[in-house]
Design a protein around this nucleic acid. Structure first.
Length: 585
RNA sequence: GGUCCCGUAGCUCAGUAGGAUAGAGCAUCAGAUUCCUAAUCUGAGGGUCGCAGGUUCGAAUCCUGCCGGGAUCACCA
């Protein structure tokens, strides 16, 4: 029930009915025709650019064409008023009956209102977080986690078939370091004095329990076996423990993935999976042995000219060819990516979305190139780069040092400010803009804090219902009763709230298509603002209060509006991943 | 030096796939509480949309060039 799409059709039909033809006698191109809410509400409820878009094609004056269109649209029973303004906009004002009917539909749909089929069940893979399993999650991971999760929620609500995926970087040098760090903690657990943790190993306390667990399980056995064997055992144990910790952290943020994909699994069996993926690329002519040109500008001091196996990514849009096999014969990180993306492609995804931190900007082009090479251009790939989050405490930046192990963990932040503010604030900015996160501001309970402002709208809705039940002396208020009296809604402020609610389906569709979950947060803020405004009009004007004891029918009608606000706020907050509270004390 | 992102009110930011007189919040100023939660609301002031060209009926939005800020840059994952 997207009224803008609905009226887009009605306008198109009106154009057809006018019998307009293109100058060459063919059909008119209606693809640029839009129906939108006008910027300025005083212009009306809907505005279309039809006359301006079609004027040139039809060889007519835009305003004259607009007049014809307006005259035709006036015959629509839902249209109360149609006028031409500015360069040729046709503004429509719709009758109260139309809006009351829309509100009725919202109440029937309840929490499903806004759900869309525009995604048409297309298979989309959203990969996000993918933090290395070498320690707890820190704040830096938080934005991508929330943006990815909210985006996945949004896409699912818009009718896409979404898979949330986490790529575990459990191969390579950093997990060797992890393994060695754990072995040290293991010796410590056996009573050895390990002194200070050597440079190059992970110093964090979170590895202590893993060492203890190894000591309990193996006693001194690991000390007696060959180093590589012991290391392998320590690595397994450590990765398992780190992933358990990460999953717990993610759970605290209300983030849940359906698939955890292990990089190590691609290397299993002597790298057969990766080898075969590279073979596929080779057969398509994308792989060669050669040397990379030195980078332009200043040459790094340790630059070495060497021959290696390269992916000819420049042929599919990249700036430079990318190494697949190192000079010592082992695979690069990117080689595993080739196999991983091939795997995703073979699982039937049409669209791959990667939510990455801004520091991965340099990685985008090679991923795009890879998608083209693997699928011959059939696979869509989008990288969403999230800019950095800067932490502040009372206006002072919070310093973090990863080397010393002194970083603010995700858990710290959630414990301090709560899950909902974290989730909402991470979305209260478009992801390609940097974000300042101030501990003090985010916990503040005032309208300066958008989280509380929106949640308060939800609480206020419930509060109105509590009041209404008490004052009317009824135990339950059923939806059919609300729905039956909607014709009593006539106040302009009430209509404004309905109009805002009516934008919700369109917002879902366009935010999903643009892959911009932040629009959800801004919409919720707007809706809350409309609702609070209407509530307050009741405190100035007695007649406008939601609960009118001497007029139960009108009360039910207004409660219908409150119920719809409550539903949409709850629906939107659920997509954001936050609670819709029933009261705030 | 290459690539990517950003530049909108004093501050923090929106701007819905090119639309009308560019919008919020904070801050400033002026108001509203015998009231369904004032954790709220109403109003005022505040702008060369970084600069210069271009595309067209129409540009904050698209293209080109410059200026400024950030990120990143070759067997690290």
């Amino acid at each position: 029930m997207n009224i803008f799409a609905d009226f887009s059709d009605r306008v198109a039909k009106a154009v057809t009915a006018l019998g307009l033809r293109a100058a060459d006698g063919g059909d008119l191109d209606l693809s640029r025709l839009t129906v939108e809410p006008p910027r300025d509400p005083s212009h009306g409820d809907l505005a279309t650019n039809a006359a301006m878009v079609l004027a040139k094609q039809a060889g007519e004056n835009p305003r004259a064409l607009g007049e014809k269109l307006a005259a035709h649209l006036r015959q629509d029973p839902d249209v109360a008023e149609a006028s031409v303004a500015g360069p040729g906009f046709v503004n429509l004002r719709l009758g109260n009956g139309f809006w009351q009917a829309r509100l009725g539909e919202m109440l029937d749909l309840g929490r499903d209102y806004g759900r869309s089929r525009s995604g048409a069940g297309r298979k989309v893979n959203v990969e996000y977080v993918s933090a290395n399993p070498t320690g707890p999650m820190h704040v830096g991971h938080c934005r991508g986690a929330v943006v990815g999760d909210a985006l996945a929620n949004l896409l699912a609500f818009a009718g896409y078939d979404v898979t949330r995926e986490y790529y575990i970087n459990d191969a390579g040098a950093q997990v060797d370091v992890l393994g060695r760090s754990v072995l040290l903690r293991y010796r410590e657990a056996l009573g050895e004095d390990i002194g200070t943790i050597p440079e190059g190993l992970y110093p964090g306390d979170y590895l202590v329990p893993v060492g203890k667990a190894l000591a309990e399980e193996y006693g001194t056995k690991l000390l007696e076996m060959p180093e590589p064997e012991a290391l392998a055992i320590a690595k397994d144990k450590a990765i398992g423990a780190m992933m358990a910790m990460i999953r717990e952290d993610l759970g605290a943020l209300n983030v849940h993935h359906e698939v955890f994909f292990s990089e190590r699994s691609l290397h299993a069996g002597n790298g057969g999976t990766i080898r075969s993926a590279i073979n596929d690329l080779t057969l398509k002519g994308h792989v060669y042995r050669g040397k990379l040109p030195p980078p332009k500008g200043q040459l790094p001091e340790d630059w070495e000219d060497r021959e290696q196996t390269l992916f000819r990514s420049t042929q599919v849009g990249d700036d430079i060819d990318r190494p697949l096999i190192k000079s010592d014969g082992t695979f690069t990180y990117f080689a595993a990516d080739v196999a991983y993306m091939k795997d995703k492609y073979s699982r039937g995804f049409e669209h791959l979305i990667y939510v990455l931190g801004a520091d991965h900007g340099g990685y985008v082009k090679r991923l795009e190139a890879l998608a083209r090479a693997i699928s011959d251009g059939k696979l869509h790939l989008t990288v969403l780069l999230c800019q950095l989050v800067k932490l502040f405490r009372n206006g002072e930046p919070v310093r973090m040092s990863k080397r010393s192990g002194e970083f603010v963990t995700l858990r710290d932040v959630i414990d301090e400010v709560g899950r909902d503010p974290v989730r909402f604030m991470m979305l209260y900015r478009k992801s390609d803009a940097p974000l300042d996160f101030d501990f003090a501001k985010v916990t503040e309970q005032s309208k300066d804090n958008p989280v509380f402002y929106v949640q308060y709208a939800s609480a206020r809705c419930h509060s109105v219902f509590r009041q209404a039940r008490e004052q009317l002396g009824v135990r339950e208020i059923e939806r059919p009763a609300l729905r039956a009296s909607l014709h009593r809604l006539e106040d302009e402020g009430e209509m404004a709230v309905i109009r805002k609610l009516a934008e919700y389906p369109r917002l879902i569709e366009s935010a999903a298509q643009a892959l911009e979950p932040h629009r959800l947060a801004f919409y919720l803020y707007d809706l809350a603002s409309q609702f609070h405004a209407q509530w307050n009009r009741g405190s100035e004007t007695e007649q406008l209060r939601f609960v009118k004891v001497n007029d139960p029918e009108l009360t039910y009608a207004r409660l219908g509006l409150v119920q719809a606000v409550c539903d949409v706020v709850a629906s939107g907050l659920a997509l954001v991943g936050a609670e819709a509270p029933t009261e705030m004390r």
